[in-house]
Each structure stands twice: as structure tokens, then as C-alpha cells.
């Protein structure tokens, strides 16, 4: 019980740190703390395999990807965190309060109903949590697993294509590029386009 409160408090603080930090690298590190705390919560919820996947995929891969891109882009100083925008902050605070109060009242007032499954803690402890989960994943949800694989392939090809455009644009920087966005940029650069992020702070 105490563990839950400590972990929940740290998770909320880390989530706030993601939003509030001015430096994006600190936000990424707060995100790492938040992901790790969620892995602990999954352990508390008797979902050991999900906790491992959370650590490997989120805390391992996703945060590293964020930090890597931050290093790639932010090393030149072009990404600066711009200041607070007050009307936007007010609107966001009101929207967040409404969202939280709505969801919170629903959680508080309604009882959890629904059809109960057969995966009781005793059954899971006897048959093995990961084994039961794997059997469920590869029998009942086989089509969904296949579709998830196709989705990952499509995402991989898409990310690769974008990266190749980056390479191609770098090698032919001086010549006329064939990228469609390039023309709009040069058109707007002639009129009044100045990178705001240079001056923002």
C-alpha cells in the first residue's frame, strides 16, 4: 500500500516534470522515471511480463530514441523551448480540470462491472503468467498479432523513407531539390519567414 503511494506520487511528479521542464532533455529523463514507475505499478498489478516489456520497449527504446533525436537536433541550438503562452495555458488548465473531474467522478461513482474471465490469480500462479498470456496472444488474438507485425513493417518502411529523404537532401543541398515542401519553404523564405526558435528563449 505504501509502495503504491510512493510510486504513484513519483509517477505524477515525473509526468509533471515532462510538461514543465524547459529543457527537453530533462523532459526525456522525467519520462524515463515515469515509465519506470509505471513498470513498478504493473508489477503491483501482477502483470510481470508487461512490466518487462515496459522497461525494454519504453524505458529502453523509446526514451533512447527521444534523447537521440534531441541530441541530433538540439546540439545545434535550433530547438529552443519557447516561453509560456498565457491564454493557451488557461484554456489547457480548464480543459484538464474538466477532463480530470469528469473521469474522476466516473471512477468514483460507478462500480466496475462486466463479465469476469477465468484468469484468476490462482490460475495464473499455477499455469504461469507468461505462458497463459502467450497462449492467449497466439490463439485468440492471432490475427491482431499479424496485423501488428504488418503495422510495424509499414512504420519501419515509412521512417526509413523519411530518413532517406534527409540523406538525399543533404547531399544535394545546393542543387534544386525535388522535395515538394522545398518550394513552399523557399517561397516563404523570400517574404517574411524567419525562424522564431532562434530568438525564442
Amino acid at each position: 500500500m505504501v509502495l503504491f503511494w510512493v510510486v504513484a506520487a513519483v509517477a505524477v511528479l515525473a509526468a509533471g516534470g515532462v510538461v514543465l521542464n524547459r529543457n527537453a532533455i530533462y523532459s526525456a529523463l522525467s519520462l524515463l522515471v515515469n515509465f519506470t514507475m509505471l513498470a513498478v505499478l504493473y508489477l503491483l498489478l501482477n502483470a510481470q511480463f508487461i512490466a518487462m516489456v515496459q522497461v525494454i520497449v519504453y524505458a529502453g527504446a523509446v526514451v533512447v530514441l527521444f534523447v537521440f533525436v534531441e541530441m541530433l537536433l538540439g546540439a545545434t541550438g535550433r530547438i529552443q523551448v519557447t516561453g509560456w503562452l498565457t491564454p493557451r495555458l488557461i484554456v489547457a488548465a480548464v480543459a484538464g480540470f474538466l477532463l480530470l473531474s469528469t473521469v474522476g467522478s466516473v471512477v468514483y461513482e460507478s462500480a466496475i462491472g462486466g463479465m469476469r474471465g477465468n484468469a484468476t490469480p490462482e490460475m495464473l500462479a499455477q499455469a504461469g503468467q507468461v505462458q497463459v498470456l502467450g497462449i492467449t496472444l497466439y490463439t485468440d488474438y492471432l490475427l491482431a498479432v499479424q496485423l501488428a507485425g504488418v503495422l510495424m513493417l509499414v512504420g519501419l518502411v515509412g521512417a526509413l523513407q523519411l530518413g532517406q529523404q534527409w540523406q538525399r537532401g543533404r547531399t544535394s543541398q545546393t542543387t534544386k531539390s525535388t522535395l515538394p515542401l522545398r518550394s513552399t519553404e523557399s517561397a516563404s523564405a523570400g517574404t517574411s519567414h524567419t525562424p522564431v526558435s532562434e530568438s525564442g528563449g
Binding site: 508487461i50 530514441l65 491482431a144
Partner: peptide, 28 residues
């Protein structure tokens, strides 16, 4: 956990898959 069902954890798998793909494409 509340409903003694593994469907929630299966869905979490798919959400993680979608999130990983989303991050990769978004950062690209």
C-alpha cells in the same frame, strides 16, 4: 486484473506496438 481477464494485457501489447511505431515515424 479486476475482471480476472488477460484481454487488458493483450491490448497493452498492441498499444505498445502502436506507440513504438508512432514514435519512430513521428521523430523521423
Amino acid at each position: 486484473r479486476e475482471l480476472n481477464s488477460l484481454t487488458g494485457q493483450v491490448f497493452v501489447f498492441f498499444v505498445i506496438v502502436v506507440a513504438a511505431v508512432e514514435v519512430a515515424v513521428g521523430l523521423a
